[in-house]
């Protein structure tokens, strides 16, 4: 319920402000609308349980990237470069192409996942009251190895929350095990879980991104460096 409400509020905000980005004439107003879009997306990330990503979204996009945009727009005084609005064939064509693209994307979005596919967390929920299955045990073991969790920690902190009086994973019923798996998966957005995966499974890509940032840093310095301060500007 809460997720639906959040989705509706932030979804409408995101789409509305995104339309404002391309509709406003003044680049500063567009930039502000884009900041609002990023905030709505951060809200959607939170409703999806991705807390770390939501925080990074605000820090990186709203806090750094958009400030950089504003800075450049103000520095170059681009507000005065507003072109007269004209509706020509190219724009009409662009909007038509866009609508076709949207229809296509939405159609694919609905068809690829029509709600009948069984998500892993719901597998094996058929029999109520049955004991935990080996599949579920395997799933829990996989989650443990991915997030480097301790079986003892799961037994002591997570299991009692799902079923009181029980203290080990093996004693759970199948439906309770599903709850446990869902809970463990739902917490994957927590910073420590993200960190664990980032520094084990994705260590090499993580290191490569540092090279990308270094390259960008050097590139920017080379691009904007003035050869001779007297001739420039």
């Amino acid at each position: 319920m809460a997720e639906q409400i959040l989705f509706i509020i932030f979804g409408i905000l995101a789409v509305g402000s995104a339309i404002c980005v391309i509709a406003f004439k003044n680049p500063i107003h567009s930039a502000l609308a884009l900041v609002l879009t990023f905030f709505s997306l951060a809200g959607l990330f939170i409703s999806l349980g991705a807390y770390f990503v939501a925080a990074v979204q605000v820090i990186v996009y709203a806090g750094a990237i958009m400030v950089l945009f504003l800075f450049v727009i103000m520095l170059l005084n681009l507000g005065r470069l507003q072109a007269a609005r004209q509706i020509n064939k190219a724009k009409v064509f662009a909007v038509i192409v866009g609508i076709i693209l949207a229809a296509e994307a939405i159609y694919i979005g609905i068809r690829v996942y029509d709600g009948t596919a069984v998500s892993p967390s719901q597998a094996g929920s058929a029999v109520v009251g049955a004991a935990i299955t080996t599949e579920q045990l395997d799933q829990i073991a996989t989650l443990e190895s991915t997030y480097q969790l301790d079986r003892a920690e799961i037994n002591s902190t997570y299991v009692p929350k799902i079923a009181e009086q029980k203290s080990t994973v093996e004693t759970l019923t199948a439906s309770e095990a599903n709850q446990l798996i869902e809970k463990l998966q739902g917490e994957m957005g927590k910073p420590d879980r993200i960190g664990t995966v980032l520094f084990t499974k994705f260590l090499l890509p993580f290191e490569v991104t540092s090279l990308i940032l270094l390259a960008a840093l050097i590139g920017v310095i080379v691009l904007v460096k003035r050869e001779d301060p007297d001739t420039a500007a």
């Binding site: 807390y51 925080a55 605000v58 820090i59 709203a62 806090g63 750094a64 927590k190 910073p191």
Partner: peptide, 15 residues
């Protein structure tokens, strides 16, 4: 659980 990140995120909006 993201308290410090939250503070950094909000601080970055002060500008």
């Amino acid at each position: 659980n993201i308290g410090v990140l939250y503070i950094l995120a909000i601080t970055s909006l002060g500008v």
